[in-house]
Design a protein around this nucleic acid. Structure first.
Lengths: 148, 148
DNA sequence: TATTGTTATACTCTATAACTATA
DNA sequence: TATAGTTATAGAGTATAACAATA
């Protein structure tokens, strides 16, 4: 069985992502949210809200699942559904005042917490990393079918 | 709120990983396995088997969860638990003959399928990507607490 | 007809913690 | 006392497909 060249890269990519995700998720959990819930909160933060469709596209969560996650966030009083006047099939999800307050209370500290993972990373390190990841991303976007 | 430098890198990392994971998971599903199940199968492939502890460390799955996933793979007849003679607290998980056959039947095609994501990526592209990811990984390993 | 979001179902994964049997 | 794995519980995410309302 021939060893494909990309496997090494994907393994590295997965290891990096998992390592970071582990510390991030563990911290999010201590804040009382699940990872997808925090993802939604972070996506809605500093916006006027957006439709389920747009929210699903940004977070890669399918519509059926998204309904449940938004339900739980609505039960916590963090988001609210409003009708979209232009297209009455569509629902707009946005942060409530409490949700906005939670976003501000949690997001900054979370960013600070996760920052420790990159302690000592130089501007040049970041620039080189971003260059390769951006190259990969545009390649993947061009090569792979879009979800949704 | 100051914009932390690492956020852009992490966003790129997550986007790349999610994009790849989406195509990989979707394909794995069509093979009749969940993503964690395939992960276990791939980890056990071409080994003599390993303990729950080692399997958990390699896949980042905690012991309670691992018991359930291995249960389901055992029900499918793909893996088997055997006792460890040296330490009788420990259980060794290894592929059954059928599991080995499934591994060989699924793994190669899956690797080929996912390869399409990197179609046209050059040796230089891979080398540059690997260099930055390996740098990041060793940095994360040094900076972040290990799970387990 | 196609699209947006909901509902229903059934399953898988997950965190957590108490438990057992060994060491 | 500590470790390896299991069990129990409850909740959360997921895929899938059928559905209602609207476009």
């Amino acid at each position: 069985m021939k060893k494909e060249r990309y496997l090494r890269s994907i393994r590295l990519l997965a290891e990096c992502f998992h390592a970071f995700q582990h510390i991030s998720d563990t911290h999010v959990r201590t804040l009382g949210l699940t990872s997808p819930q925090f993802d939604i909160l972070a996506t809605l933060g500093n916006t006027e809200g957006m439709s389920f469709k747009e929210l699903g596209q940004k977070t890669l969560i399918t519509k059926g699942t998204l309904t449940g996650i938004v339900d739980r966030l609505e039960e916590k009083g963090l988001v609210i559904r409003t009708c979209c006047l232009e297209d009455r099939r569509s629902m707009i999800v946005r942060l409530t005042e409490q949700g906005q307050a939670e976003f501000e209370r949690l997001f900054g500290p979370h960013i600070q917490f996760c920052k420790q993972a990159f302690l000592g990373y130089s501007d040049e390190d970041f620039a080189a990393l971003d260059r390769e990841l951006a190259k990969l991303k545009s390649h993947l976007d061009a090569t792979m079918p879009k979800p949704g």
